[in-house]
Design a protein around this nucleic acid. Structure first.
Lengths: 142, 142
DNA sequence: ATTAACTGATACTAAATTGGTATCAGAAAT
DNA sequence: ATTTCTGATACCAATTTAGTATCAGTTAAT
C-alpha cells in the first residue's frame, strides 16, 4: 500500500528546496542537483505546480521558479491532490444513490472515515513545517 | 490516491459473505454470484486468503471455503497487507542508516506517522464489525 | 545580434501493476 | 463415472508509473 508516488515525493522535496531559499529565481537544474531528481521529470512536475498556483516561474536566462505562496500555506495534501488525485470518495456516495452492494457500502463507509482522517493530517503538514523539522534535525547534528 | 484495490475490496466482500453464513462450506461460485465478483478472479483471491490462514477450504463436490477464524478476529488491515503489502515504511528507517536526503527524511517521518494511524484504524475494522454495521443498515430499512 | 540559460508544451518509451481470463490436474460426493 | 469443487499456474490487455527527448520561445548578458 504505497501512499505517495514519485511525483508527489519529488514535488514536496522541490518545494522544500524552494522554501529554504529566500532569494530570487531558482532553476530546475539547481533543484534537480540538490534533490537528486531526474531533470526532465522535475521539469514536468514543476510545470504542474505552476499550473496549480503553488509555484511561479520566470522564463529566460536568470529565470527559474519560486514559491508562489508562503511555505506555511502549502499543505502536502494539496500536492497529493495535484499528482494523485483527491483521496477517493466512495462511488456509492458519489453517485448519490443507494449502493447496489451493501457489503461494499459498509466497507466504503469505513474507508471514507479513514480517508477523511488522512486528508486532515496531510493538510496540517505544510512545507513550512517540514522545513522547520528539517532545520531542527540539522541543528541537532551540529 | 486510491486506498484499496479490487483484490482487497473483493476479498473483504468475500469474507463478509462467508462471515454471514454460520453453516458449512461455501463454493467460490456462490460467493461470486452473491457479490458480483468475477469468478476466476475470486478463485485466485480466495486461494491467497487460504494461504494466509484467513480462510480454509475443502476440495471436491460439496466442498468450498469458510472462515478460518471468527469474523471479529479478522481485521481489514490484514487483508490490505496480503493484497497491497504492508503500509510502507520509509526506506531510510528500513535501512537503519542515515537518510542520504534529509528533506526526504522529514517528509517520510510525517508519512510514517500518518501511515501508522491508518494501520491502527484499519486494524480496528474487522469483518465482524462490518457485518454488524451491515445488519444495522438492513434492520433500519425494515 | 548572438549566444547561453532558462521555461512551455508535448510526445515518446519501457517496465510494472492491475484487473481479469483460461486451463489442467486432482479430490470428494453421488 | 460423472459432477462439483479446489490447487496451481500461465496468460493477457489496459493502465499507470517513472523517466527521456525534443522543439519552440523568452530573457539576460556579451
Amino acid at each position: 500500500m504505497k501512499v505517495l508516488n514519485k511525483e508527489t515525493d519529488y514535488a514536496v522535496r522541490a518545494l522544500i528546496s524552494l522554501g529554504m531559499k529566500s532569494d530570487g529565481w531558482v532553476s530546475a537544474k539547481v533543484i534537480s542537483g540538490e534533490q537528486a531528481i531526474p531533470y526532465q521529470f522535475l521539469r514536468r512536475i514543476l510545470q504542474e505546480l505552476i499550473r496549480n498556483g503553488l509555484v511561479e516561474s520566470k522564463e529566460g536566462a536568470g529565470g527559474g521558479v519560486r514559491l508562489a505562496k508562503e511555505p506555511g500555506l502549502i499543505a502536502v495534501a494539496e500536492v497529493i491532490e495535484i499528482f494523485q488525485g483527491k483521496v477517493q470518495l466512495s462511488e456509492c456516495m458519489f453517485r448519490k444513490q443507494l449502493c447496489s452492494n451493501r457489503a461494499n457500502c459498509v466497507l466504503r463507509h469505513e474507508i471514507m472515515r479513514i480517508e477523511k482522517m488522512v486528508n486532515q493530517e496531510f493538510s496540517e503538514v505544510t512545507i513550512g513545517k517540514l522545513i522547520a523539522d528539517l532545520k531542527a534535525v540539522e541543528a541537532m547534528k551540529g
